[in-house]
Amino acid sequence: MSYFLFILINNIVPISVLIAIGFAVYRAFRIDIKTLSKLNFYVFSPVLVFVKLYESEMTMDTLGQVLLFFVIFYALLCLTVEAVIRYRKYKGGMRSAMRNSVIFYNSANYAIPLNQTVFAGNPHTLSIQIIIMLFQSLIPNTFGVYSVNAHKVHWKDSLKIVFMMPAIYAIPIAVLMHTFHVPIPASLNIPLQYIANAFMATALITLGVQLGALNWGFRFSDVLISNFLRLLIGPVLGLLVVSMLGIGGMTAKALILSCAVPTSLISVLLAVEYDNEVDFSSQAVFFSTVCSIITVPLTIYFIQFY
């Protein structure tokens, strides 16, 4: 019950407030969502990635173990969602939209506070979540951008779009600066912190604007499938992988919990920026976040026995 109340009060309610603000702003002023999308993609998101990676504490042993887990887990998750896509016979942009709603999950603003609460600020489990966040920042800005454009343009043009994303340059720069302990001057660090701290609010307000603009013909079956795969099949596959690799203790619990969080806002931002199944993507993010108040506490309960 305490986890349920924590998630409701500290995750769902704040998220809902910001979404409601975006919804109200759109209804009042009909603001341009494309401008918000570009700010998220080209300013707030890459700066957030850079700051989180630069400030993270991780060891090579932890990095190697989490990398092995993530590669196997991600492969299984992708195979699962691809099987569903083929079974449902999704076409065109819906294929990438469904895929993105399952394989891109909220590993930063939702998962990090959750990790710190569940594991009482344990630095080891937090470093695991930071590494997961690293991978979850890299893939949407590379494969995610490529996949939403692949059915519309030539693969060479899709790759050009990928290499225009600043986040793919922010990641190696942050890792190198972190590894070699390169200091950031205060005159640069202060604006970086301002921008990174603004990401969550801007992204959620963008989601609210999109929810205010969309046609509320609820795509129940598609959204339900997406939420089921993300919130229930995700942690089950995580449990399968840690068991297969013989990982135990706090490491296993942190990895399983990292697989149980709702769909990332990046799937909405990709949909808006490249005009790809925006209604479905917005609904998948919104309802997966709401449903997580039930599924995440269940995951927390079960990992106590692992």
Rank of each mutant, 00 (worst) to 15 (best):
I205F: 01
M244G: 07
I247H: 00
L265S: 12
L229Y: 03
S221C: 03
W216E: 01
L257E: 05
W216N: 05
L232H: 08
T206S: 09
V241L: 11
I247S: 01
I266W: 07
S226P: 06
R219T: 08
R230A: 05
A213M: 09
P262L: 01
I233M: 14
W216V: 10
A203S: 13
S243K: 13
K253A: 12
V268C: 14
G217R: 15
S267L: 12
L224H: 04
G248F: 02
T202L: 02
L245E: 04
G217Q: 14
I205H: 03
F220D: 01
P235I: 06
A260F: 07
V209E: 01
L245R: 09
S267I: 14
G217L: 10
L231E: 11
G234K: 12
V209A: 01
A260L: 06
L204N: 01
G246H: 01
L211K: 04
G212V: 02
A254G: 00
L214E: 08
A252Y: 06
T251W: 02
I247P: 00
G234C: 10
L224M: 15
V242L: 10
V236Q: 05
A254M: 06
V242N: 06
L265E: 02
T263H: 12
L232G: 13
K253I: 00
I233G: 05
V242R: 04
S226R: 04
L265I: 14
S264I: 09
L239V: 05
L237Y: 04
S258M: 07
I225G: 09
A260T: 11
L211W: 02
K253C: 07
